[in-house]
C-alpha cells in the first residue's frame, strides 16, 4: 500500500481509475439506481477520452508494418540512441537514488533550519517546465558560473553525454525525493527508536531497520526515476545539445527524426519509450503483489 501511495503523488492511479470506469456501471446497477442524463454524460466523457487515448496508443503501434519497425530498430542510429539512453539513465538513476535517499530521510526525520526552504525548492521543478530547467542548468554549468571550475578539473558538462545524465538527474531528483519521503513518512519512527534502545547507532538503525522496511517504496521510486530519466527531453536537449549520434537519446531520436520527416525512426523510438513506461508500471505491480 505504501507503494500505491507513492504512485498517487505521480497521478498514476488516476489514470488507472479512469480505466476502471468500465466496471463502475455494474455496481451501480446492483443498487437499483436509475441513470440520470448527467451521469451518462460524465461517463460518456470518460469513455470518449479513454477511447482517444487507446486509439492514439494503437496508432503508434499499428501505423508501421512490423518489418519497418524491425529495420528501424536495427538501424545504427537507433542502436546508438538506445544504448546511450540505457547508459545515461542507469547512471543518473543510480546517482538520483544515492542522493535522494539521504535527502528524503533528513526531510522526514529531522527538523532543521531551512527545511521548509529545501522542500519548496524541491517542489519547484515539478511545476516549472523542463525546458526552463534545461536553460537554468545550461547557465549554471556553462561559461558563466560553475563551468570553468569543472573544466579546470577536466569535466565538461554542456553538450556532452555527461550533460545528458546531469539533466536527467535534475529532472528526476525532485520526484524521487517525493516518493522516498512518503515512504519514510509511512515508517513509524518508533521502529527506529526500538532499535536505538538496543544499542544500535543512527546509521546502523537506518541500515538494518529503515532501509529494509522501505525497500518496496525504494524500488518503486527507482523504477519511476528510471522512467523519468529515460523520458527526459527538454532539459536534455538544452544542456546536452541533442546532436546526431553524439548526445542522442531516445526522446531526442524521436524529435530529430520527426523534424526530418523520418516517421519510421520517430515512431519506433516512441514505441520503445512507451514500452519502457509500461514495463515500469508493470514491474511495480508485480513487485508490490509478490511482496510478503
Amino acid at each position: 500500500m505504501r507503494f500505491l501511495k507513492s504512485l498517487e503523488i505521480l497521478k498514476i492511479p488516476e489514470i488507472l481509475k479512469t480505466l476502471n470506469i468500465l466496471r463502475a456501471p455494474d455496481s451501480l446497477k446492483a443498487k437499483g439506481m436509475k441513470y440520470s442524463w448527467f451521469r451518462n454524460l460524465t461517463i460518456g466523457f470518460a469513455f470518449f477520452f479513454t477511447l482517444l487515448l487507446f486509439l492514439s496508443i494503437g496508432a503508434l503501434l499499428f501505423v508501421l508494418k512490423p518489418s519497418e519497425i524491425l529495420s528501424a530498430l536495427l538501424s545504427e542510429e537507433m542502436f546508438y540512441s538506445m544504448k546511450l539512453s540505457m547508459l545515461t539513465s542507469s547512471a543518473s538513476t543510480l546517482s538520483v537514488m544515492c542522493c535522494s535517499i539521504p535527502t528524503a530521510y533528513a526531510l522526514s526525520r529531522y527538523s532543521f533550519p531551512g527545511k521548509g526552504l529545501i522542500k519548496t525548492v524541491l517542489g519547484l521543478p515539478m511545476a516549472f517546465p523542463e525546458l526552463v530547467m534545461g536553460l537554468a542548468l545550461l547557465l549554471l554549468f556553462g561559461h558563466g558560473f560553475l563551468g570553468p571550475y569543472f573544466e579546470a578539473l577536466g569535466i565538461k558538462i554542456t553538450f556532452t553525454r555527461l550533460g545528458i545524465a546531469v539533466a536527467q538527474f535534475f529532472v528526476a531528483f525532485p520526484f524521487a525525493v517525493r516518493v522516498i519521503y512518503s515512504t519514510f513518512e509511512d515508517i513509524n519512527p518508533r521502529y527506529e527508536q526500538v532499535s536505538r534502545s538496543f544499542g544500535y547507532g543512527e546509521f546502523e538503525t537506518f541500515r538494518y531497520v529503515t532501509l529494509p522496511m522501505a525497500r518496496s517504496g525504494l524500488f518503486a521510486s527507482g523504477v519511476i526515476t528510471f522512467a523519468r530519466c529515460i523520458g527526459a527531453f527538454g532539459a536534455v536537449l538544452i544542456l546536452a545539445g541533442g546532436s546526431y549520434m553524439h548526445t542522442e537519446v531516445l526522446p531526442v531520436t524521436l524529435y530529430l527524426n520527426i523534424s526530418y520527416g523520418n516517421l519510421e525512426m520517430a515512431i519506433t523510438s516512441g514505441i520503445l519509450l512507451m514500452g519502457i513506461a509500461f514495463l515500469a508500471i508493470f514491474s511495480f505491480e508485480r513487485f508490490e503483489g509478490g511482496r510478503l
Partner: peptide
Amino acid sequence: LPPNMRQISI
C-alpha cells in the same frame, strides 16, 4: 546520553 547508551528497553 543517546538512547543506544542507556540500556533501557521499551
